[in-house]
Nucleic acid binder design. Structure first.
Length: 447
RNA sequence: CGGAGUGUGGCGCAGCCUGGUAGCGCACCUGCUUCGGGAGCAGGGGGCCGGAGGUUCGAAUCCUCUCACUCCGACCA
């Protein structure tokens, strides 16, 4: 993408309303625009990141055997009366009426609707297990939205719902979600720690939250420092292997890690003092097993092997997709701007032409751009007629992982410069070598 | 929902107390000079001052109502 043909409305100054770093940088980097309290438009750069996060979630859910669907944002009130939540849910739920005075609501979650879909089409244990998920916009009319997309009223969520014949099968689904979530976060460059949580309005017995450590987190967290070193890495996971999936979950939940809601001071005190950590975390996902809480009142039953009608065991499992954009920035930035992890970066590499209009520089940049494109790498080429300082400042702000700097001085020696946004380290090399190197560095990234 | 604030051009702000018809920086447009870390000079365009009433010869400024947004708290992915 050539910057002169793109839409990247960056701000030099800090908008007054932005209190935390992710909100500031998202506004300054032209990623979002607020349209009402807690409601945002996603501008091209922000939308790219959002779509990349979405793509990772889709891929990892697919690997776990979970099936995508898409449910509407508006739901009929009657469905929620069946579960009793129409009245139980407070003013957080946005209620509205259509022209025929029919009561609707903008979905804050989808347990009722997915259960309705299930009961209409599934009636035998032979069709289980089944896990459906969707990524859709939701609305919760928070009293006080703040921190940009970290706590908006409208937000994009991945929600997964599993349907299983019994508790044991449902817990395997729970475990699949935990592992697939850990893989998703890891791919996004995050360390997200599963912590036993309190169940809240969704209900249920077993539940874990996933917390990204950050000073601006909304929850106080207590943990054994060793949990931060756990990595899935490239290990192969067979999601049908109950024992293996359970073992991975055990590995990641064995060490102490709790939010303030479930904190156990005695257990915490048993950890060696050097490893005992108190910090803050951003919640980026939560998984629940809630047995037959919805299937019983809503009549989601299947016939089992013995011919008996039994309510299915369910769970629901969410990832805050739009919130993750903010969480990643909170976890990865410096004083000059965002530092995107490669997998979620809007572009993997930027090309800075230091002297636009200079024949050699223009030609070298165009050549680099085309050579990268030929290798499937889309660069953001800053071809504006701006001074070097302005171009560097923009690149630093928007945080692309790699930058190729092209100027007459270097070109005279046949060199361009490749710079890492994360480390700031630069290396001079020929344009051809830069293309090869960038291709190698970005090889693992799709797009 | 309690408490505290703020609404003046795309962004950041001044002007309001002490009414006289709007200003600064950034951004934008034109020209010249610059050109490896947010350039300089000159010229230029853009705002019914959140909205509605009221007071007044006259309201961004004073009064009333209203809407929106922000911050602190309680709540929440």
């Amino acid at each position: 993408m050539r910057l002169t043909r793109y839409f990247l409305p960056v701000l030099k100054e800090n908008p007054a309303e932005a209190q935390i770093v992710s909100h500031r940088y998202m506004l300054r980097a032209g990623m979002i625009r607020q349209q009402a309290a807690g409601i945002y438009s996603w501008l091209p750069l922000g939308y790219r990141v959002l779509r990349r996060i979405e793509a990772i979630v889709h891929e990892e859910q697919g690997r776990a055997g979970h099936i995508p669907v898409l449910m509407p944002t508006l739901q009929p009130a009657d469905l929620w009366r069946e579960s009793g939540r129409y009245d139980a849910y407070g003013p957080e739920m946005l209620r509205l009426k259509d022209r025929h005075e029919r009561e609707l609501l903008y979905g804050p979650t989808n347990e009722e609707m997915i259960t309705d879909i299930f009961r209409a089409h599934v009636s035998s244990y032979r069709d289980l297990p089944l896990t459906l998920y969707h990524i859709q916009w939701k609305f919760r009319d928070e009293m006080r939205p703040r921190f940009g997309v970290m706590r908006g009223r409208e937000f994009l969520m991945k929600d997964g719902y599993n349907f299983d014949i019994d508790r044991e099968a449902a817990l395997h689904a729970y475990n699949r979600h935990m592992v697939s979530y850990l893989r998703s976060y890891e791919r996004m460059g995050l360390t997200a720690i599963p912590m036993r949580a309190a169940s809240g309005p969704i209900g249920g017995d077993d539940t874990h939250e996933f917390l990204v450590l950050a000073q601006t987190g909304e929850s106080e967290v207590f943990y054994d420092d060793r949990v931060t070193a756990l990595k899935l890495g490239a290990r192969a996971i067979d999601y049908d292997d109950r024992a293996q999936v359970a073992a991975v979950c055990a590995e990641f939940t064995a060490l102490y890690a709790r939010t303030d809601e479930t904190h156990d001071p005695a257990a915490f005190a048993a950890i060696p003092e050097a490893r005992r950590k108190v910090g803050r975390g951003i919640e980026v996902g939560q998984i629940f097993y809630f047995a037959t809480k919805y299937s019983e009142p809503m009549g989601a039953v299947v016939v089992n092997e013995k011919g008996e009608r039994v309510p299915v065991h369910m769970g629901s499992h969410g990832i805050g997709v739009s919130r993750l954009v903010g969480a990643i920035i909170e976890a990865s930035h410096d004083e000059r701007g965002i530092v995107w992890p490669l997998e979620v970066a809007p572009f993997p590499v930027g090309i800075v032409n230091l002297k636009q209009g200079d024949g050699a520089a223009d030609a070298a940049c165009a050549g680099l751009y085309a050579a990268l494109a030929a290798r499937g790498i889309e660069a953001l080429y800053d071809d504006r007629d701006e001074r070097a300082g302005a171009k560097f400042a923009t690149m630093d702000l928007i945080g692309l992982p790699w930058r190729i700097t092209v100027g007459p001085r270097g070109l005279a020696a046949g060199k361009v410069e490749l710079t890492s946004r994360r480390t700031g380290e630069s290396e001079e090399m020929s344009p051809e070598a830069a293309v090869t190197r960038v291709a190698a560095l970005c090889g693992g990234r799709a797009g």
